[in-house]
Write a protein that binds this DNA or RNA. Structure first.
Length: 422
RNA sequence: GGAGAGGUGGCUGAGCGGCUGAAAGCGGCACCCUGCUAAGGUGUUAUACUGGUAACGGUAUCGAGGGUUCGAAUCCCUCCCUCUCCGCCA
């Protein structure tokens, strides 16, 4: 969420951001609503000031056992006017809020302006794309042949795009989670947290999933609770409403959680295999930092995510997402894409974003730079590190061998207890 | 699920219709004092919105939302959360 005053003072900039993002939000009402609000506010506050003053006088008169009946009658009328004006203000503020909470973040100056994902900028590539002297199989064939995944079982118990990992497949997932968490905790200095997988409405609002993206979330009507689409949601909101001190920053958290996404609007897309699931595992990193350091922290965060892919020796590339492809709350976002030999595609395994104060303002996460300094919003960042299913695709397809077996990346061998899946 | 207690500033914690944006303490800041120096004294110290170039005003905020009243932290209603006990269950 952007600051109301910022929107007012930088209206052209906000409009430009909305346009560059290909966002459909209509800003045309904003200026008049904002002016209307302040007009009403001036009126009602004058009346309230009068009421406060006269109420004092009434108290004084009563104390002196005088007759305050005339003033009380007068104020009764003022009270009615205040009620009417307050109602008008409520309506105007409601309309304003609808707009304000749906305005996306302003892209950072280094975010390329573009009109589609084709305009994303490849920042770097790492690792060598292997060449096979046999025909590479897609991961679903490899997984089925080796008994790592029960696709039908997942569909039977929940529906399409739900899968069940079985046997060494399940252990591979667990090995990856342990490997990633250990790496972030021991090498990168993060604190592990294990948050709730279900959150309330306020929490979903805090990170920007609501109000715009409700249809993408699983929801329990009975309790008005949501299944998390990413650990970012509970972990970022862990500090919602907090006043931190400058010395506490930066705070680094890492968490494993399952992620639940309805993928509304993506029906029929990537239906085969592990490419797009309603439920998947992910290890996430979340940072709370001093605004002055957030762009350095963003680059460090990217490196922490890259470390996972490098350790797994998977070829990948880093994309700087353009304005049309970047997430609602992000000012800048790198996507990490792993190359998958079997399906011959780059697959997104991580998004590494800087939200600046956008989420902190929604979730009210502040800090004081000095002991008696004014409160400021922290900057929040997060990155997958990494999403499991597509990482597993990368491993299965890139490490497959002519006989159908799959070599285990060196760093996973100790977690998995073997160097080959066959 | 049943019974009770409670939610107040950066923190602890009073207040229970007007003199309370809010006592006291802690913490912070400024200055002063001091041959008891991790001591003492004095002052100061919330946030948001809004008006104003500013100085400085106004309004709101005591879990959230309604209500009663000239006036609500204080009374009433609804909801949320926390704690204790009981029940149930991993």
């Amino acid at each position: 969420m952007l600051d109301l005053k910022f929107i007012r003072d930088n209206f052209d900039k906000v409009q430009e951001a909305v346009t560059n993002r290909r966002d459909s939000i209509d800003l045309s009402q904003f200026t008049s609503l904002d002016a209307e609000r302040r007009e009403y506010l001036a009126d009602v506050e004058t009346l309230k000031a009068q009421r406060n003053r006269v109420s004092q006088e009434i108290a004084q008169i009563k104390k002196e056992k005088g007759d305050a009946e005339a003033k009380i009658l007068e104020m009764r009328d003022v009270g009615t006017q205040i009620k009417e004006l307050d109602e008008k203000i409520r309506q105007v503020e409601d309309a304003l809020y609808q707009i304000q909470t749906r305005i996306p973040n302003i892209p950072h100056k280094s975010t390329p302006v573009g009109s589609s994902e084709a305009d994303n900028k490849v920042e770097k590539s790492w690792g060598e794309i292997r060449t096979f002297d046999f025909e590479a199989k897609p991961h679903w064939e490899i997984a089925e042949n080796l008994g790592l995944i029960d696709f039908e079982g997942g569909a039977r118990v929940a529906g399409s795009s739900f899968v069940t990992f079985t046997g060494r497949g399940a252990k591979l997932a667990r090995a990856l989670i342990n490997f990633m968490i250990d790496l972030h905790v021991e090498k990168h200095g993060y604190t592990e947290v294990s948050p709730p997988f279900v959150v309330n409405r306020q929490t979903m609002f805090g990170t920007g999933q609501l109000p715009k993206f409700e249809e993408d979330l699983y929801h329990s009507d009975l309790d008005d609770l949501f299944l998390i689409p990413t650990a970012e949601v509970p972990v970022t909101n862990l500090l919602a409403g907090k006043m931190l001190s400058g010395e506490q920053l930066p705070i680094y958290y890492t968490a494993y959680t399952p992620c639940f996404r309805r993928e509304a609007g993506a029906y029929g897309k990537d239906t085969k295999g592990l490419m797009r699931l309603h439920q998947f595992d992910k290890v996430e990193m979340v940072k709370f930092v001093d605004p002055e350091t957030s762009w350095d922290e963003h680059e460090k965060l990217l490196k922490d995510a890259e470390d996972v892919l490098q350790a797994l020796e998977l070829p990948y590339r880093v994309l700087n997402l353009c304005t049309a492809d970047i997430g609602f709350s992000a000012a800048k976002c790198y996507d990490l894409e792993v190359w998958a030999m079997g399906v011959q595609r780059w697959l997104e395994v991580s998004s590494c974003s800087n939200f600046e104060s956008f989420q902190a303002r929604r979730a009210n996460i502040r800090f004081r730079r000095g002991k008696s300094a004014k409160p400021e919003y922290v900057h929040t960042l997060n990155s997958s590190g990494l999403a499991l299913p597509r990482t597993i695709i990368g491993i299965l397809e890139n490490y497959q061998q002519p006989d159908g077996s799959v070599r285990v990346p060196r760093v996973l061998q100790q977690f998995l207890g073997t160097d080959v899946l066959k």
